[in-house]
Amino acid sequence: MSTNKITTQKVNFKVFRFNADEDYLPYYEDYSMDVTSEEVVLDILNRIKWDYDGSFSYRRSCRHGICGACAIKVNGRSTLACKESMTTMIEYFGNDLTIEPLSTKRAIKDMIIDKGDFWEKHAAVTPYLAADIDENPTCENLVSPHDAEELNDADLCIQCGACHYACPVVEINSDFFGPAAFAAAYRFEADVRDSDSQRLIDVNEEKQGVWDCVKCFECAEVCPKDINPIEKITKLHQMAFKKGVAKNNVATRHAVGFLHSIKKHGMLDEGGLVLYSEGAHIVKHIPVALQMFRKGKIVMPWNMPKSDNLDEIQKLIKSSSTVKF
């Protein structure tokens, strides 16, 4: 129990309002309130509904960060309303706060959105254990603590969607599975009891899979459960190589190309990497490459800089490599 004194400050809220059945366009309503340091974002949503407008709509159920229903955006940041303290929000963004649904373009009524794409993506990664289970077991099917740790807390995801609607790729590429689906895929891939052989292949497909993640870490930053989806995405990449299901394509060659470059120069050979990754498709990069060349931005192969003590690097690559492609 905190012994800090409860403080109060005035906050101006700009709140997204929309009723898909009646409104042609969404609009914003202003509310000013005295907010105490003890309140969470959900308290504000409740007060808008109870004190100002009974028609104001939002999802919530557990009020304990368990059901995942209440995620919304405050000043563009995905947040779990029942867990996020108002003090933090004011510290982050000041006393003028904008409250919006996770995705304004998916809004149905006020904070309530159509999360259909999120669930579709989730369902598409085989989010369950595929295992031959003895229907009449004679003993428990135990998982050792060490094996359970391999899940890296991926099983704690509450499917709130905060990461999915914070992911820039989800907005651009509608095929992309998104961070939560990847975290779910990892949760089962990392489970020693699982025997599914298709899931890892699916999440490594081009366009929809892990290789289209831009590595922005938005998902890691927003997740209220500290799932760190990008960490799981990285592990799915590694698993694909380890289990030999990584296809030979521009994305995988791009990853492996770093190794070849470092082995040869210690440093990255930028041109060499693009050539190795793209193969014959290198031609499409020629116009930009020419512009860069004219500005002294391209180093010729015979001038490639090398790291000092390159022999050390080569020795370490030999002794420390754990994967083959």
Binding site: T234, Q238, G266, S307, D308, I313, L316, S320, T322
Partner: peptide, 22 residues
């Protein structure tokens, strides 16, 4: 001048341990 490439988070996708060592 002895430093190698950091792996740019791509070597990390391929071989985690090696990228840590480098």
């Amino acid at each position: 001048t002895e430093a190698s490439c950091c792996g740019a988070s791509h070597l990390q996708d391929y071989d985690d341990f090696l990228s840590l060592v480098l």
